[in-house]
Simulated assay, not measured.
Amino acid sequence: MEKQLKQSLGIDVSKLNLSLSLGFLSERLVKEFKSHPDVSNDEPGYRELLKWLKKSVDSTVDLLIVMEATGVYHQGIAHYLHDKGYAVCVMQSGRVKRYAQSLDQRSKTDALDSRMLSMLGLERSIRLWQPPSKELQQLKALSRERSSLLKDRTIETNRQGAISSSVYSNAKALKRHKNRLKLLECQIALIEKEMQELISKNEVLKQKIGFLMSIPGISFISAATVIGETLGFESIVNAKQLASYAGYDIVLRESGNFKGKTRISKRGNSHIRAALHMPSMTCVRCNPTLKQFYNRLKPNKAKPLVALIAVQRKLLILMYTLWKNEEVYDAGFETKKQQKHKALAAQDNNLINQLVS
């Protein structure tokens, strides 16, 4: 039997089922695939998957399991397989979509998607997935719940204003709306308190949140929301990937003489963009680095909002840098960096002059 170089299991995840495709890469660089009927996305389905894997895989070759991040539906199988000792890769949907577009495949089914994920595991070098800590998962859940309640509060506030301004306003209906609004305010306050307590119990997380809060304009809620939504930047390896994850990557539309509008893609985490909107407005007033950056961009943009979005992107990357390097914000960093570059340039000029003379 021909020796296998790599083997990869692609799992297309839906709410109820898992579509499976097991791929092998031989020494002749030929790919072969085995399929299996869909299994249920629950404990019995996971056990059935394990039985099939033990019969089908080559125990002498490492197995890579690839799946796409699909909200919460992939979490069960990802944690189950990781706990069993398998190497699991959870891919962001944007990267999977770009890879699928590179294939000569016009149809789209669950079976084809699982085969495509298996092929991706055979062809590419992929970073392994590690389960985030329970604190970060709870922080993300609380952040999402708070975001939902904020939207509900806005709706109730608008409804209350409409009823009170109406000629035929109903006093009892207005009272009910006020009670609902008061309940929402109370629940939002409780969630924020719970977020504070959750982080205060973890010294490492508390310290790292402090690094982000050292940035002028960043509050505890803003920092906690960004950390919760990125799960501590667990799957982020560089600033470019982070910008794409949050939907701040730039989209150009140009062809020949046609010059379309340049904008951000917004194909990312909208919760992060919402969490950074108000902090960015504060930063352009009180943050010395970002204020200078905003004032330099604003005159060149048709709308001030474009420059403000650029500030949000820069602010997010700054938070990522402080988190990874475990450093406190330094307002004079840019100035020191420029002075260092000038000093190095002066040394180079002196060296060149000495060599010439």
Rank of each mutant, 00 (worst) to 15 (best):
D113Y: 04
H36K: 14
L103Y: 04
S59A: 13
L16N: 13
S93R: 11
D110I: 04
K54C: 06
V72G: 11
V66Y: 02
L150M: 12
R115W: 13
W52R: 15
L81Y: 08
R28S: 14
L139D: 05
S35I: 03
L53F: 09
V30E: 15
E68D: 08
Q101E: 15
H74V: 10
D62S: 15
K84M: 13
S143M: 04
S147R: 05
L128M: 12
L142T: 05
L22M: 08
L81N: 01
Y99R: 02
S26A: 11
Q92T: 08
Q101F: 05
K97T: 14
K140G: 05
R124A: 12
L64G: 06
D62A: 14
Q130C: 05
S114H: 06
D38M: 08
V88K: 00
E135Y: 02
G23I: 03
V90E: 01
Q137C: 13
A87C: 12
L63D: 02
L139F: 00
S125G: 08
E135R: 05
I65P: 06
L49M: 14
A141S: 12
T60W: 07
S118A: 15
L50Q: 07
V39Q: 14
L18K: 02
R146N: 11
E123N: 14
L16G: 00
L81E: 01
I126R: 01
E145Q: 15
T154S: 14
R95I: 07
N17F: 13
A78E: 02
R47M: 10
P131D: 00
D38G: 03
T109H: 05
L139N: 04
E43L: 15
L120S: 02
Q105S: 10
Q101C: 02
P44S: 07
E135A: 13
R144S: 09
V13W: 09
Q75C: 03
L22W: 00
A87P: 06
L103Q: 13
T157L: 10
E27S: 12
S102M: 09
K31A: 10
S56P: 02
P37F: 03
K108F: 03
S102R: 07
V61Y: 01
H36P: 02
D83S: 11
W52A: 15
K84F: 10
R127Y: 06
M91T: 04
R127M: 07
F33G: 01
V61D: 01
E32L: 10
L29Y: 10
R124Q: 15
G23T: 04
T157D: 05
V72E: 12
G71V: 05
R95G: 01
I65M: 03
H74I: 14
V72T: 11
